[in-house]
Design a protein around this nucleic acid. Structure first.
Lengths: 331, 331
DNA sequence: GAAAATTATGTAAGCACTAACATAACCAGC
DNA sequence: GCTGGTTATGTTAGTGCTTACATAATTTTC
């Protein structure tokens, strides 16, 4: 699913849709089991059932919703004959919500339905269900203790102060060349032996034959990398492009690409190609915008099992790359 | 929070409220960071940004919503000048959604905001955040593979066919006496040495001194237990009452209680008491309904550190317990 | 090549919730 | 005892989504 690739950014949407799925499942179960209640009623009714009569605010606080929501829900319960409102004699503002006998009877009959739900959820979700519950619990607590927005804004201020800079290979950054690439390789494919060799020893397999490695830095964090590999005299391969997931969208990929293309031209290269996979759509778009052209056939003697895309650098004539570079520098 | 005590039963409500919290947090962040977008727009806009122009249905499928939702959201994006609709020349039914330059520019500026969100979420939620994402992912997959409703309905049918039966102690059930009690003790308190002793050796510490242990069975599953402990001649303590969380609401607790009270009367006991904790509200209600009366002071020489409630069995005269038993048997 | 089915999209009505306001009851401090 | 603030609740309008329906374009089927 597309949303899962956005990880933290689309949390709310995914939670919402999971929530809807469970609400619907609940309603379907109640309907099929002959229960006369709806899944949205459950928290309020169960609370009244367990704890006895309570005020609107009590209920709202317990189930974590606004008093309005509870008040409106109560209207429905009253209309359905499940609950009633009684003025509190001691305090005229309050009104006690109570289950009617019809309401308590409806709940009393639900015992085995609840047991079935608990078991059924365990059957379907297994350990994931327990894990989900635990994670929800933990997040609720974490959000209560440490509000998330100020945290994000602090981070934002820090990031806004720095900007992405491309630097050439340095020995002390070698580790990152491997780590950044391993992350996405593991995610989408597997790490092939040739990857491991090159990623572990860039000096020997990239630099020495006449290639280059670049890193994208944000402040003092290494957020991306790529390599220009000399394949034959004048022939270069763009490869090992990787940007840390948390820093996608900053333009680091494009800047790395531009740096590699610059290096290719400085070296008076005659051909620059890359191999990739159809799975990596956003990357392919970027390559295309940068001047790479998709070839109809795959590269004849590819190094990679995963490669099903072959692109060659062929920018439109009249030096279209120059102005582009200025824009990238500005962004 | 009350909802967390309902575990699987209130999953939907809790997911919804978590979702709302994240939506609100997102909006707050965007507002404060000067971004011109709303958190609800994000999935659609990001998708168009990454994958290029797409039809309503493409977008809907990718972000897991109905085409109507996307269509309506598009109206808003168009009104805000972020996107436009273009009729597809090849297929007159379709209309391609595209970001306007204003839209793409707005997103391009969001790079560091997204990075900040990812980092900030990690700061606030830490491992819980990762765990939550993993759990969501797993649940989505599990629900797709194995629909949950038929599972629940099967379970329900099975449960509806059997009913709760109370049986006296049997050696081969000894393990359950410990397991059922350990579950709730660990959850609310800690297991004190005296608990461990009695739970592990009910024959020696409960039966031999003249007490009794009961189990509640549903089909061949042991779902609850309780013990009647002889404290002194004619004086009995009701204790070690436990019902499996998955089977709350079936009335097993009440039936166990009735069985113990019956046993107490059969033994011509003169006093029956119990100790419990204010934390266990639903249990206290049940005890009260069964005829236990809350004492103003705690029991003088309590065995338990956790006990802050002391109740004595004193049913209203004129044999109120008899009719009650019939009802319990019927339920 | 016309009829039937499918696909793509928009529109309307409804639901669950929230925010914002309105009202009434209560309470604390002078 | 009155006054300003608080608390408890209801009411209204608005939002984001869904379902159900409507419509038009396209493809399939005989």
């Amino acid at each position: 699913m597309y949303l899962s690739s956005l990880t933290e950014l689309a949390l709310a949407s995914r939670l919402k849709s999971l929530s809807d799925r469970f609400y619907n499942a609940g309603d379907e179960v109640y309907r099929n089991a002959g229960a006369r209640i709806e899944s949205r009623w459950f928290p309020v009714m169960r609370f009244l059932w367990e704890q006895g009569p309570a005020t609107v605010n009590d209920v709202a606080a317990a189930i974590g919703q606004t008093h309005s929501a509870v008040s409106q829900l109560t209207d429905k319960l009253v209309r359905a004959g499940m609950a009633k409102r009684q003025g509190d004699a001691a305090d005229g503002r309050r009104s006690l919500l109570t289950l009617t006998t019809k309401g308590s009877r409806a709940l009393a009959e639900l015992g085995i339905v609840w047991a079935a739900i608990r078991q059924g959820v365990k059957d379907s979700l297994g350990a994931e269900g327990t894990q989900l519950l635990a994670a929800i619990e933990a997040c609720e607590r974490a959000l209560d203790e440490q509000p998330i927005v100020p945290n994000i804004l602090n981070r934002h201020a820090a990031l806004a102060a720095s900007k992405v800079v491309i630097v050439p290979f340095r020995t002390e950054l070698r580790e990152h060349f491997h780590a950044l690439n391993a992350a996405w390789l593991r995610k989408y494919f597997v790490i092939e032996p040739i990857d491991e060799k090159v990623l572990r020893h860039p000096e020997e397999f990239v630099l020495k034959p006449g290639g280059a490695v670049f890193f994208a830095m944000l402040g003092d964090e290494v957020i991306g990398t790529c390599a220009l590999l000399r394949d034959a005299p004048g022939v270069y391969e763009l490869t090992k492009m990787a940007v840390d997931e948390s820093f996608r969208g900053l333009g680091a990929g494009r800047q790395l690409l531009d740096a590699a293309i610059d290096e290719f031209r400085r070296g008076k290269g005659t051909m620059l190609f890359l191999e990739s996979s159809k799975k990596l759509k956003p990357a392919l778009h970027m390559y295309q915008r940068a001047g790479f052209v998709l070839q109809s056939a795959n590269r004849p003697d590819s190094h990679y099992a995963r490669a099903d895309v072959y692109m060659i650098y062929a920018p439109p004539k009249k030096s279209a790359a120059k102005p582009r570079k200025r824009i990238a520098g500005k962004a």
